[in-house]
Design a protein around this nucleic acid. Sequence first.
DNA 1: CGTAAACGGTCTAATGTCAGACCATTAACG
DNA 2: CGTTAATGGTCTGACATTAGACCGTTTACG
Lengths: 243, 243
Amino acid sequence: MLIDSEATALAAVLRPVRAGNAFEETVERLLQVIKLRVVDHGERLPPERELAPLLGVSRVTLREAIRVLQQEGYVESRRGRNGGTFVTYKPPRPRKGDLARVAARHGDALNDALIYRHAVETGAAQHLATVELSPDQESQLLEALAAVNTASIAEYRRLDIRFHLTIAELTGSPLLASACADARLRVTDLLNAIPVLQPNIEHAAVQHAAVVDAILASDPQAAHQAMAEHLEGTAALLRGFLG
Amino acid sequence: MLIDSEATALAAVLRPVRAGNAFEETVERLLQVIKLRVVDHGERLPPERELAPLLGVSRVTLREAIRVLQQEGYVESRRGRNGGTFVTYKPPRPRKGDLARVAARHGDALNDALIYRHAVETGAAQHLATVELSPDQESQLLEALAAVNTASIAEYRRLDIRFHLTIAELTGSPLLASACADARLRVTDLLNAIPVLQPNIEHAAVQHAAVVDAILASDPQAAHQAMAEHLEGTAALLRGFLG
DNA sequence: CGTAAACGGTCTAATGTCAGACCATTAACG
DNA sequence: CGTTAATGGTCTGACATTAGACCGTTTACG
């Protein structure tokens, strides 16, 4: 029998070295690409010969994963010179009760994900406010902001994700960027289950602008604060639809 | 050719689904357990039949990993009823130049890890200040603090790690706890390469106390601030030995 | 003092995963 | 209008990994 504090410390380190087998993880990852709309409806995934090494799996394993997505109707493959694997998935218009179902499926994972997301995304915003941005990086950030703030309802989520991931990537810390991507996609299913409303967009736009302002003003505390408020808005929205 | 913002977003999601093969990752993880001194010199690892499922690998793979650690002199296995695999590794007294060598081996990863660690650990401290702690949890936290603050130089690192991981675990977010563990072990090699000095311990003790005070006072901002100052102290220490 | 329990150590057969070669289809391009 | 390049589709042989049974050693305990 271990004493408590040892058990606590062990739990954090003696966890599985891998989440599942290569095939399952590849399906998961591709689903994330599609649901985060990094590759949107009608667009093409990278060719298998490029994608497999990017994901660190063999082409055989990648193809098995793609076959599942074909059967589930997420993608379609075409042969030939301008062929490829194309995304056919469109996020369905959310219906009442969707969120409750999805939330039930997630269980405790929701709170876990929201806490995690808060930590890594506020951390990213704060850090970005402490680094000197090149003109190119500044314009990337401003473009992402402009895009999300002028988005149609249909494009909103996609561009919102891109905005958040841009901040994460610009920190220059791959670990932190991955963590932000991971955190975001853990709440994506839930967000996809609630409708995008114009007032929410407008509210978020103000907050997005505040985050960018603080970053460009090199004010880490303000950036942290602004991102925290923004994320709490989203979390409250989710909890509101749940309650 | 992809436009820039797409490439940015893709990079965060289209990364390898696994870091290496099961065997390599198992060796890595066990080294972490040993170097973080979760299982210290003379102590026993869990039996193979328990450890393998915890790490999510087969016993064969686990044993291959253990065999490497035996050859490298980190552990020793004994058969029989009170047998097991025992840690023989003692952190060597750091020598001048160690840090430079280790840092060179890490390269950019050092900055990456420090940024990541700052984000997740300040996030954990801040979050913990927002939750209602049970008496049992409070005493766990206070015990961890007392332990690290009265530690001998030899025991200091081990108890410092336990203190930080206790905060992470108490957040109740497994994702955040894993992230903190991950972040910590990415700087462990570097920290092990610099000596533990009494003034550093005393300085850190004040900061640790400030973190715990803020958490128990349910002051998230102060907790964030206190942890940030503590981590910056460590980061500065590392950079100082490097410069 | 013998027996059973708790370990590490070994083996096997099945399955997962890989790299790489090769096939089939389509469209761009000379 | 043929050739070639870029894609998805298929196959093979090698290696990694697994679950599970079984062996050998030591010690606690009846």
